[in-house]
């Protein structure tokens, strides 16, 4: 039997994306290639299952940058454990992080 929570491939991709620093909904969409209709409900589901938590950015920070405040997501401890488990289950997920590194290097 699995030693951690079992999550779908989509959820694993989203958790992995948040884990490597894509903390906004749209950036998660960009890095995973998933549609908004998939990502946002999945983020809500992961938050309900306490694998991530969300918070609104402070208004003062957003105002200083002349842009609207946005909601950002962070992994919880259970979420971090889920990412570790899902990496074993979906080994190709590691490519998400390495591809991101390649893009940054270029």
């Amino acid at each position: 039997m699995a030693d951690g929570p079992r999550i779908s491939h989509t959820s694993a991709m989203i958790l992995q994306a948040i884990g490597i620093g894509h903390i906004y909904g749209y950036t998660v969409m960009e890095v995973t290639g998933l549609a908004s209709g998939t990502v946002y409900p999945a983020l809500r589901r992961l938050e309900r299952d306490q694998l991530i938590r969300s918070q609104w950015e402070r208004q003062s920070i957003a105002e200083a940058a002349l842009r609207p405040a946005r909601r950002y997501y962070k992994l919880t401890r259970a979420g971090e454990a889920a990412v570790e488990t899902s990496r074993k289950r979906y080994p190709l997920l590691a490519k998400l992080a390495s591809r991101e590194q390649e893009v940054q290097d270029v």
Partner: peptide, 16 residues
């Protein structure tokens, strides 16, 4: 296309 995904999100929220 991004905005059309809002329907799925709103439906999820209503159902849950």
């Amino acid at each position: 296309g991004f905005c059309l995904g809002a329907f799925q999100d709103a439906l999820w929220l209503r159902r849950n």
